[in-house]
């Protein structure tokens, strides 16, 4: 029985992370951006689990749990923001919501 090589798991993790990042950078809808963020979190978690499994340590899973916590909090706040933005701007297009734009003084 051969173990899954660590490199391959990390490659999977990198692919998922890159896909998430590509989604984050290309999509304009806030909901899709949040989903892409979830993908990226997940990819990071995968890397931790793989490393933890490779050395038989619990730390990898603990960090996964912390990432999970972070993701839960992030989703709570992010979706709240999405609701608020939709309420105020009647859109979720992040390119149209640019109130922080700096104008010439």
């Amino acid at each position: 029985m051969s173990a899954v090589p660590l490199t391959h798991v990390l490659m999977l993790s990198a692919i998922l992370f890159t896909l998430g990042m590509a989604g984050l950078l290309t999509r304009r809808n806030l909901i899709f951006m949040l989903m892409s963020l979830e993908v990226m979190f997940n990819a990071a978690g995968l890397a931790f689990i793989a490393a933890g499994a490779r050395w038989g340590q619990a730390d990898g899973q603990i960090f996964f749990i912390l990432i999970l916590t972070l993701a839960a909090a992030e989703v709570g706040v992010g979706l709240g923001l999405a609701l608020q933005i939709h309420h105020r701007f009647r859109t979720l297009d992040m390119d149209k919501v640019c109130e922080l734009k700096e104008t010439e003084p």
Partner: peptide
Amino acid sequence: GLVGAYHL
């Protein structure tokens, strides 16, 4: 996160 989500 809880407080933030509730507030937002």
